[in-house]
Design a protein around this nucleic acid. Structure first.
Lengths: 203, 203
DNA sequence: TGCACCATTGAACCACTGGTCAATGTGAAG
DNA sequence: CTTCACATTGACCAGTGGTTCAATGGTGCA
């Protein structure tokens, strides 16, 4: 029975949510127009009516993910920490916790990365997202370098933030592949060692 | 014209190579029995005759990748380096170079990781591979900890090697997504800073 | 109230995929 | 040379997925 009209935006969101549920659980490959429609309790035709094509649906899903996911939140409790190196470490810890606490989200990003290899538009969007993420680290990296210039001679803020991002992405990979053996505390202990002795920090 | 017989092993290898060519370029999703057959200049039926099912072909491809790819080669020129921390850094550099020089291979591993999320057997194999890789780092990590016990207090060899692996995987992600902006030298400079001042090393 | 627009439906279309299998020719053994 | 096991072929089948579209009936406006 055709009916049950809804606003454009609401319908799109309803479909996107269904797509997210599916993709984050079963992977991007398992995403079919029919399954999305079923999950959203709509007809398959309607999904394409609103998104045009499956490919555009996937692109829209990525956009949705990127805006939804708070990219990197540097809150006051972090900016309040006196020592720059401490700040960086606390931030690292928080981001690692986020990775582990939202495995499905990370998993989906993973799929998008892989798809980006062959899909130009997705690749562009992922690169932009990565740039933003790295950029968010730069101020803190800059402060770290200023605090200990002799230690990090020749290191640029860009380089240091890139390494931080790299480390976090690596943790994401590790935690996804081997969740049981992934121990954040051990990671942070080792990181502490790498970054030098620091005061004990909580949360 | 049915003919052109070949030995079991040779045929399997011929098919696997074709599968690798395809998968590493176009992704695992793009791998179809027909395409593999076409690339290997064989009939589709023969592919399944030798591998039973597409899934087994993919599994065999992963096995092939894992044995082929020299997991982690700690050569003499590395064991000859006196300072343990230097050794670790040189090893990191080599592995990062490997990541960047074989993007297609890394890309394929990436696909397998993603697939492992839903495919139990693949996940198991990937975990085992990851364990081996991490294990290869452990001796050096152990030496590093022995050399500077006070600096890495509370850090286990397992933890340190896990972090090293994590870092490399992170670099792999970064280099895959954004190859142009990926600068190994800058990375290593920052890593140097993180690990403390070290003598300049080459290669 | 009636009308016209359009969101909505679901069946149908078509391309393609994994898998099966009877037919076929090749190479080696006797 | 004959024979026979079997690697090899390609047509075929059933299933699936993206996409199209004629039909339908709410919904808001006149």
């Amino acid at each position: 029975m055709p009916g049950q009209k809804a606003s454009e935006a609401a319908r799109r969101m309803q479909i996107l949510k269904a797509a997210y549920e599916l993709a984050s659980r079963k992977g991007l490959d398992a995403l079919t127009v029919r399954l999305v429609a079923k999950r959203a309790k709509l007809s398959p035709g309607l999904v394409l009516f609103h998104f045009g094509t499956k490919d555009q649906l996937i692109t829209a899903l990525l956009d949705y993910l990127i805006e939804t996911t708070s990219v990197l939140h540097v809150t006051e409790d972090i900016t309040g920490i006196p020592a720059p190196l401490d700040r960086l470490l606390v931030l690292l810890r928080r981001e690692m916790n986020r990775m582990v606490s939202e495995p499905r989200l990370i998993r989906l990003f993973f799929d998008f990365w892989a798809k980006g290899f062959t899909h130009a538009l997705i690749r562009t969007k992922m690169q932009a997202e990565l740039d933003r993420y790295r950029e968010a680290f730069r101020p803190i990296a800059h402060e770290v370098l200023q605090a200990e210039p002799e230690r990090f001679s020749g290191v640029t803020p860009e380089g240091l933030s890139a390494v931080a991002v790299s480390f976090i992405k690596g943790c994401a990979v590790q935690s996804m592949i081997d969740p049981e053996n992934f121990d954040i505390e051990e990671y942070l202990a080792a990181t502490n060692g790498l970054l030098g002795q620091l005061n004990a920090q909580t949360a």
